[in-house]
Amino acid sequence: MTVEIHDGTRWQPVCALDDLQPGRGVAVLLPDTDTQVALFVDRSGALHAVDNRDPFSGAHVLSRGLIGSREGRPTLASPMYKQTFDLLDGRCLDEDTAPDGTPAVLRRWPVRARAGATRKDRT
């Protein structure tokens, strides 16, 4: 099974599903750009891909955060100052705006796992 991320133009294969450890993330460098995506698989096998840049610290570290849940919705906590983001809509649940005044929302990247012939879209 190959994990693919849609970079806005096309699906990019990024790693094997086996490379991912449930509950933990990896960072992906989208080919031909400096864009970084944080990629996770949770205990149920669902894939999540969001910006790797933490809007509160400006550091590209979100792939190193912890995933979990808040009131039933899957979440990601930043390892830097611990703000929590909703993985379904990318919004920060603790603060609305980042220190630079921009809205604290992570871009969500379409992601799927694809096996040779069978095609299975997951988000």
Binding site: G23, D42, R43, G65, L66, I67, G68, S69, R70, G72, P74, T75, A77, K82, T84
Partner: peptide, 8 residues
């Protein structure tokens, strides 16, 4: 649930 950055 799935836990969080406090309990994990």
């Amino acid at each position: 649930g799935e836990g969080c950055d406090i309990c994990k």
